[in-house]
Design a protein around this nucleic acid. Sequence first.
DNA 1: AAGTTTTATGCAAACCTTTGCATGAAATTT
DNA 2: AAATTTCATGCAAAGGTTTGCATAAAACTT
Lengths: 341, 341
Amino acid sequence: MSEPRATLKDIATKLNISISTVSRALNDHPAINQRTKRKVKSTAKKLNYYPNLLALNLLQKKSHIIGVVVPEITSHFFSSVITGIQDILRPSNYNIIICQSEESYTEEVEILENLMRVGVDGILVSPSSSTKNFDHLRRFKKTGIPIVVFDRDCPGLEVDKVLVDDYDGAFQAVDYLVKSGCKRIAHIGGPLNLSTTKHRLNGYLDALKQHDIPIDKKYIKHVKGFTHEDGIKPAKALLKLENQPDAIFAVNDCIAISAMHAAKMLNLKIPEEISIIGFDDEPHSSYFTPGLSTIWQPVYSMGMLSARILLKRIDNKDEKQKLREEIFKPELVIRASSKKM
Amino acid sequence: MSEPRATLKDIATKLNISISTVSRALNDHPAINQRTKRKVKSTAKKLNYYPNLLALNLLQKKSHIIGVVVPEITSHFFSSVITGIQDILRPSNYNIIICQSEESYTEEVEILENLMRVGVDGILVSPSSSTKNFDHLRRFKKTGIPIVVFDRDCPGLEVDKVLVDDYDGAFQAVDYLVKSGCKRIAHIGGPLNLSTTKHRLNGYLDALKQHDIPIDKKYIKHVKGFTHEDGIKPAKALLKLENQPDAIFAVNDCIAISAMHAAKMLNLKIPEEISIIGFDDEPHSSYFTPGLSTIWQPVYSMGMLSARILLKRIDNKDEKQKLREEIFKPELVIRASSKKM
DNA sequence: AAGTTTTATGCAAACCTTTGCATGAAATTT
DNA sequence: AAATTTCATGCAAAGGTTTGCATAAAACTT
């Protein structure tokens, strides 16, 4: 029942013509007779012929495959970026291979080696939180295959970048908290070698400074991972401080939700006793009680732009073009988890 | 700076030996002299040589690529299944191409054509909610490339399947609701050509029947999509009925959350006035107030098993093996959104 | 009728790798 | 010293496709 795949040769043999004629007929080459074309096309259909991309790729030295390297796909953030990427790449006839580093540097190195072997035409990378050194990306870059880094920056690596102004987002959030009357604003940040985390922390610090609020180290905690569980402990620690904070700015929505949960367990009123603001604006976030105030970022657009930039690089591989660094602006979304101004 | 990729030929030329010797040396063929091997390997490293999988694939008539076709990846459900799949396939040196049908039948057809052209070694499929006809999968099957269907069944299609006992999950949920004293149990279901949706509806109906509770059609609503927005309207409609239901069993957590939201807006007490149970047990679900009762399913394991079955099929392609149909059992997780028994 | 253009098709190389078979040299046995 | 075995390497084919160049036949021009 399972017939092996038909090839050009099969069609050629059946019709008693040469392989090249068959190839040209299928590609609508002008030099081929209309009658021949019709014959070829109908037998191609009958034999269930599909061109073998493998062979074509080998010939063209192009795999038509793009590698996408992300820490994980289970978060709404990355799965949305990927959707944006796909929606651009698919119409251009590129397939994508998605690889999850699971926040591990060694995994990431292996993934890049694998992608080189596969012969991808380009890669889109958001590095893991344990990646401090970008030599594996430099090695990749040396082969001449274009790289676009998105969301999480790789400082010092000279490639195209599509980022978000995390500093600004954090600044907006904390500025709002101050203006709404919060005095003791805490921050739960992420792993410090992530550019996003670092910038959000800096935004937090600078917003406080701007309002002449002294920075108190005991109000700053860091999580190792980005799951709910990771957030509970630092949130509790903050809320049990002698001088309990009256606001928490969390590194993302997941952690903010943990903080809300912890606050509720301690019977604190949100936002009267404690304001909470997150980062990401996940679809769930507005459905919590109270609705989570957060920083929205244009996730899908980020995916699309990254993909577009990569495509351009691939198409104009030889031409030396200036490196691009696009930075999206995030927006503050105020819901019920933070006091009104 | 960007040197084109080194080939076996480059190494051979440099060392003044034949390509075959280089190939064998790199693959540690026993017939090759140790000194030669060392020389070859060191120059390979120096030239930054990576084997060209494209060429190898063409030779072996194997792409080492697996296609994964899902409705979308932004839901926690599918992204987790995919993670399970990847964790099995990656160590076996398979790369995966993930394709999103976005619940569209025509997209799905195109995806399958594309995957045939790519020459994948197998596919894992969960059909879209608008797919009623599986001829595109049958056409694919005819080429002899193995297919495994997961989560959403394709009735009548003779392939390996990895499913969840949705009927049982729904039955458990509704049985619990009845036993906890609910009298007017409503259901918000999904699109009816999805096997999962259909089975959940049947589980709901049978549980009611078993307890001699008459089925009331006005207590049954259906959503078209699976986002929060899709859930709000039917939830409100149910809650505004003259004879307001005292429980809602929703087709998944997302819709259940919408129902909770709607209930809160109407100032209903959960679970005193209305119990709510969802399906999926997403990580967020336990963090809502009240924590959402739901049906847990072994998502990650489902991905892993599907991948394992596919690998076996690929390895024993010729041997005729009986089709497998594995069915996972889901589990009821009671939290605070449903009355205690 | 001879020469020229147009039209349609085929040949063969190239892409990179693996591998069965052949070859030649060195080492061993008789 | 001749015959046999072992060891190391090379040749060439195969996998499916595209494409520049060559060729052959038909159609046209003079």
